[in-house]
Nucleic acid binder design. Sequence first.
RNA 1: GCGCGAUUAGCUCAGUUGGUAGAGCAAUCCGUUUACACCGGAAAGGUCGCAAGUUCGAGUCUUGCAUCGCGCACCA
Length: 727
Amino acid sequence: MEYKEPNIDPKLLSPYDPTSTEDRIYALWQESGFFNPDICIEKGVTAPDAKPFSIVLPPPNVTGTLHIGHAAMLVIEDIMVRFARMQGYRTLWLPGTDHAAIATQSKVEKIIEKEGLRKNDMGREEFLKRVTLFAQDSHDAIVSQIKKMGASIDWSREAFTLDEKRNVAVRTAFKKMYDDGLIYRGHRIVNWDPKGQTVISDDEIVYKEEKTKFYYLKYGPFTIGTARPETKFGDKYVVMHPDDTRYMQYKHGDTIEVEWINGPISATIIKDESIDMEFGTGVMTITPWHSAVDFGIAERHKLDKEQIIDTYGKLLSIAGEFAGMKIKDARAKIIEKLESKGLVEKIEDYTHNIATAERTEAVIEPQIMNQWFINVNKPIADRENKSLKELMLEPVKNGNISILPDRFERVYYNWVENLRDWCISRQIWYGHRIPVWYKGEEIYCGIEAPREEGWEQDSDTLDTWFSSGLWTFSTLGWPEKTKDFETYHPTTILETGYDIIFFWVARMILMSQYLLGDIPFKTVYLHGLVRDAQGRKMSKSLGNIIDPLDVAKKYGADAVRMSLIIGTGPGNDSKMSEDKIKAYKNFANKLWNITRFILSSTEGIIPDAKFSAYTDADKALIVERDEIMKAITKEMEEYKFYLAGDKIYQYAWARLADVIIEESKPILGGEDDYAKNSRAQFLLDTLAKVITALHPFMPFVTEELWSLIPRKDKNLLLVTAWPASHS
RNA sequence: GCGCGAUUAGCUCAGUUGGUAGAGCAAUCCGUUUACACCGGAAAGGUCGCAAGUUCGAGUCUUGCAUCGCGCACCA
């Protein structure tokens, strides 16, 4: 018998090779323009009146490269986007990056430090040039990584939180809030980072456990407790609870003379209900300049406030002989002196949590400073006199925004309800300059700088989350009334990590509700952290970091995508291992071989969508397959990608390959032409459907296979219709 | 302190209004001249954290407890 060369692409004869395929496929997609919804409509693959589906990419910080958590985010979003596009929606996924003010600036500071440079010697302009270069490099690396992962994102609309358009949005938003009296400048107690030399918000604080000493000191007739004797120099108020029977003989406002660190002082008795009678002796002295709680007491009773510690963490002249010393060094010396004066009653071991700065890890020193704040409690006239807090709560409470998993809704309420005014000014150089100018006593806030001479702009920049809060609409052209804004806002879904629900999700709701009177998105899908195989956080020090690019190179991006999605429900952390990736690399090859078998054993048969002469056995297989497709569609629509992905994997491998194909061998090699034709049509049809349903999960290998299977239309799989109807 | 989550096979996890426990990976045994060894087949592996309750029936619902993890707050 004469050997006949199979009439299939020779590519299929060797195992699937992702590395030689993926870049080529991505280029093909980009050339097609189909990532851009306008082009989809122009070329007729999306109906002109199709419903929009829009999502913004949570902009990665330009502080370096993407980690595996970013990869997971890209995969989840790309699955949503590809699924929506295949279902016929007018689908927009909008990319961008975040300037991440403090994070990026401190990164560059560290780099130039190694070169022996300091930012203050370079000057603001020179330093910012350097940061911009660094940001550009990071940006380029990030963009290429996003492409490697296969993200079907519309590059023609790319944005940056610090570019010119976003700057206009920021200034516009600031001005409106300023004019409405929501943004104000005032002397408040703030979180000062002595290392970063800037104020940070409450959310940028990380509490760390510290073992220290607790000192009981004699203060006139009282014993006071403190962990921070170095702040006690100026303490001239002694506070106790009004109901504390132990101190009934002292009346609010009484003064007593006490011998203190640097000599006698006159102390005033203050009665305040915030005092915990159970704690220590129930008596304390206060340091309003360096404690938020003490500040509150001082405000209530209109007490004097005095600064003890400067912005570098050194004691001021009020400390007398200790002036100029660092807190750490001063503490022991002060206790020594107090002991010599017989004022120390006892010292206990003490464990408490201290506030540190998220970025610099420095211990926060509360300070009273003149900073810019957003008032979250003030009623807003053109928002039915609701406050920002109320505007943030409303859409989640009434269901206009739903959060997945829904338990995070309660976390959100709890946070918003306890929210204090948001400190938005930062003493760093990299970021949006505050659009306020000063001339003597005059203040001017405007979108543009004042024309006249002699005005000087505020030197502070804005909290990076101020610009991120505008992201869902600043990226669509706001404040201009663009077509994009009208079409795609509010966005369909926001997909991000649960760790930034407060930083970002809440701020977007705030900004959108206030500036637009509308929600920024309808659904929030929160993903968890990607951990290592043992469930540990990935970190440099543990050496357990999995670089998405490395593993994508080794096993293919499709395999990495599958391993990031299977077993990962919303809100839960997931575990990642190379073994898991390897399993899905094998699956890509399995698909490859399934295709090879079906094509080579159905030679000469043209797939016919209208074919109906199926055998009863094949009819049953069709029913089974279509039910699975329907179930998968339902799970996709419920955002249960981990279930849908696994289901299609199971069907392709355990059912189609292991059972149906094996059973088909005798039929296809047999004499019964009726059964043969029927089975061949079934296999070709099922192959196409499986590949299509897998496309959101494994876009590269499926697109490649799509190009190899015989069919009439020549469209990319990217824009091919989803193989099951809406559930 | 307040709140949340997890606890199912060695590992990672499913288990959709309660109806006799599932998958992948790993490990074991068998199998290699036509789709695939990046494979196939077989067998093995669980008193579903513990205790009580509701029920004809609980991995699933209720309560309590334990362990692990997380978030928020923080007191001098």
